[in-house]
Structures are given as structure tokens and as C-alpha cells.
């Protein structure tokens, strides 16, 4: 038996909007730790890792570990039927082939049940090693979204370089080139507006902008985004999900031919 009650149901709606264009089908895993997902895009270039910790739910019952295969497009269709202020409860029976989403309006005058068919998904679970990153950049998520959008009108690859001068986002295309440099700025009124650059070693890596743009669908979840870079590893683009967890996107770099 599984029953997860999330008072801030809009978080789950936003989570789905953040991953449904990257991944078609995925297994949601439920354990005493929380509600989680790990999935790759169909090209196996990007990986998304979601965790919503059990403590973040008002009620969290998961009698035994359960993996539920869902089509994210269909799940998104159902969650779009929930109001932004609704409380969302996810319910499933052990061994069952459906999951139920229950939406309660804040005043309890409307209660809706949506039952969705589960599917068998044979997915590979990858071990993600803990890593020390060469450089970590924290910046406003809206600024990162703007940069990715702007650069993708010029080119299809972004080079992200971190030096002691700051972080540089560069691209090149048929019509020309673009460089955007951000310097560390912590003298801001609101902490979420800060640009914090932690550089242990300079690093420069190339990534497909198409994926970066897809990751920025998570912008409504968090005011800030953290970008962790190491020359030997996929970049990690992380958005916190309120106080209860995170969405981390891993993107394999483009390498020299």
C-alpha cells in the first residue's frame, strides 16, 4: 500500500513539466527515503534524477519498496487537471497495475480521482558516483534560462568556461558568435539574485544547447540553479524542489573529434 499526500500539489505539477519533454516513460520508485525517479532521455545523452523526500509529504505511507512505471506525458495530462492550490495524494496498491491521483481543493469542496494505468518499463539504473567538481556556479535560474534561450538562437552548442574572471557561456553559428560572461556578485539585496562562482580548477566544456534548454523547464521550481562542472564528468544542473528534494540533470559533454 502506498499513500503520499502532498499539500503543495503544484510542486508535483511543476516537476512533471520539468521532465516530461526529456523522458517519455520512467519508473517512479517509492521507499522509506522518498519518491524518486532516475531516467535517461532516449539518446542516453542526458539523465534526470528526482528525489522528493518522505519528510516533505504531509502523509507518507510506503509499506514496501514499489516501482511504478508511468508514461510521463499521460501523467502530466492527469496532473494538469489538478488546481494549483490543490492537495495531491498518490495512491497505489502493492502489485496493482494502476495508480490513483486524488486532487482536493483547499476548501475541500471538490475532490477528484484520476486513475492511470501503470506500465512495465525495463530501465537501467545507473550508479552516480559522488564527485568533487572543478567548478560550481550558483546563479538565478531565470538568468540561466535566458542565457540558454538567447544562445540557442545563434548556435547549437554552448561552451561553458569557468576561470578566475568568471563564468563564460559561448556559442557559434552560421550568423556569428556570442559570448556571455557573468562575474561573481554577492552584493545583492536578495540572496537568490547572487552569482556565486566556486572555482577549484578552471574548466571548459561543450554541451548541446537543446538539452540545456530542456533542463530550464524546471525554472519555475526554484529561484536558483547550481551548475557543477568537471572536465572528466557530465555537467550537473540542479534545481531544488522547495525544502523537500531536487531535480538533477546530468548531461554528457561534447568531446573532441
Amino acid at each position: 500500500m502506498l499513500e503520499l499526500r502532498l499539500v503543495q500539489g503544484s510542486l508535483l505539477k511543476k516537476v512533471l513539466e520539468s521532465i516530461k519533454d526529456l523522458v517519455n516513460d520512467a519508473n517512479f520508485d517509492c521507499s522509506s527515503t522518498g519518491f524518486s525517479l532516475q531516467a535517461m532521455d532516449s539518446s542516453h545523452v542526458a539523465l534526470v534524477s528526482l528525489l522528493l523526500r518522505s519528510e516533505g509529504f504531509e502523509h507518507y505511507r510506503c509499506d514496501r519498496n514499489l516501482s511504478m512505471g508511468m508514461n510521463l506525458g499521460n501523467m502530466s495530462k492527469m496532473l494538469k487537471c489538478a488546481g494549483n492550490d490543490d492537495i495531491i495524494t498518490i495512491k497505489a496498491d502493492d502489485g496493482g497495475d494502476t495508480v490513483t491521483f486524488m486532487f482536493e481543493s483547499p476548501t475541500q469542496d471538490k475532490i477528484a480521482d484520476f486513475e492511470m494505468k501503470l506500465m512495465d518499463i525495463d530501465s537501467e539504473h545507473l550508479g552516480i558516483p559522488d564527485a568533487e567538481y572543478h567548478s560550481i556556479v550558483r546563479m538565478p535560474s531565470s538568468e540561466f534560462q535566458r542565457i540558454c534561450k538567447d544562445l540557442s538562437t545563434i548556435g547549437d552548442t554552448v561552451v561553458i568556461s569557468v576561470t578566475k574572471e568568471g563564468v563564460k557561456f559561448s556559442t557559434a553559428g552560421d550568423i556569428g558568435t556570442a559570448n556571455i560572461v557573468l562575474r561573481q556578485n554577492t552584493t545583492v539585496d536578495k540572496p537568490e539574485d547572487a552569482i556565486v562562482i566556486e572555482m577549484n580548477e578552471p574548466v571548459s566544456l561543450s554541451f548541446a544547447l537543446r538539452y540545456m534548454n530542456s533542463f530550464t523547464k524546471a525554472t519555475p521550481l526554484s529561484d536558483t540553479v547550481t551548475i557543477s562542472l568537471s572536465s572528466e564528468l557530465p555537467v550537473v544542473v540542479e534545481y531544488k524542489v522547495a525544502e523537500m528534494g531536487y531535480i538533477r540533470y546530468y548531461l554528457a559533454p561534447k568531446i573532441e573529434e
Binding site: 539504473h125 557559434a172 554528457a252 561534447k254 568531446i255
Partner: peptide, 14 residues
């Protein structure tokens, strides 16, 4: 501009 690498080149299956 470079060859696209894959996630499995960096992370192993459990």
C-alpha cells in the same frame, strides 16, 4: 563542434 558522448561512458549500471 565535437562528438556527443553518452552518459553510460561516465556512469555504470548498478
Amino acid at each position: 563542434m565535437g562528438l556527443q558522448s553518452r552518459i553510460s561512458e561516465y556512469f555504470n549500471g548498478d
